[in-house]
Amino acid sequence: MSAVANPATVAECLRVGAGFSQGDRNWIAEQFATLDARLAGFHADATELEVSVKDRNARGQKVTLECWVAGRQKIVTTSSEEDLHAALNDVRDDLRRRLNDAKTRQEPRHNKHLRETDQPEGVPVQAAERADAETA
């Protein structure tokens, strides 16, 4: 996969929605920073993240993290954890899993490991890769 010229990062793409203030944005972005490696495959100008919370600090609060990447379906993750930090970690980790799942579903032909396991018995991998290269 070629490098993206302007890779998406949490710091660049994150918006805070209902229940959060701009003052909350920096610590939330720090908590979500581990998503940067996963977002780097997308263009920053085609990627948006929005985090919101309903009934903040109350029993039954609900944190929602939405992710839009151009050309893909919107991903929405939610958490009802009572601790705000735990809820933010929950939606972050779920988004990372769902981005990984979407990438695997959308691009298995680029995954050498998946191609190797799909070869019929008795066909050397190198011969199959040569055949793939000739038909590409």
Rank of each mutant, 00 (worst) to 15 (best):
S2H: 13
A3Q: 14
V4I: 15
A5G: 12
N6W: 06
P7Q: 10
P7W: 05
P7M: 08
P7A: 05
P7C: 04
A8V: 09
T9N: 13
E12M: 13
C13D: 08
C13E: 07
C13A: 10
R15Q: 15
G17Q: 08
G17N: 14
G19W: 08
G23E: 14
R25Q: 02
N26E: 10
N26R: 07
N26L: 07
I28V: 13
I28L: 07
A29F: 03
E30C: 03
Q31S: 13
F32C: 09
T34A: 04
D36F: 09
A37R: 14
A37E: 15
R38K: 11
A40V: 04
A40R: 13
A40M: 14
F42T: 03
F42I: 01
H43S: 04
A44R: 04
D45K: 05
D45G: 01
A46T: 08
T47E: 06
T47P: 11
E48R: 13
E48M: 08
L49R: 02
L49N: 06
V51C: 06
V51E: 05
S52T: 07
D55T: 08
D55Y: 07
N57T: 09
N57W: 10
R59N: 08
R59I: 01
G60V: 01
Q61A: 04
K62Q: 15
K62T: 11
K62E: 12
V63D: 02
T64C: 13
L65G: 10
L65H: 01
C67E: 03
C67D: 06
C67Q: 09
W68P: 00
V69F: 01
V69S: 00
V69L: 01
V69Y: 00
A70M: 03
G71E: 08
G71I: 05
R72T: 02
R72L: 07
Q73G: 02
K74V: 11
T77I: 12
T78K: 11
S79T: 12
D83A: 03
L84I: 02
L84A: 03
A87P: 06
A87L: 06
L88I: 12
N89E: 02
N89K: 04
D94C: 09
D94R: 15
R96F: 02
R96W: 03
R97S: 12
R97P: 03
R97N: 09
R98F: 04
R98Y: 03
R98L: 09
D101M: 05
D101W: 08
A102D: 09
A102P: 00
E107G: 00
R115I: 15
T117S: 09
D118V: 07
Q119W: 10
P120N: 05
P120F: 01
E121A: 05
V123P: 09
V125L: 11
Q126M: 02
Q126K: 02
E129H: 06
E129Q: 07
D132V: 12
D132T: 10
E134A: 11
E134F: 11
T135C: 07
A136H: 11
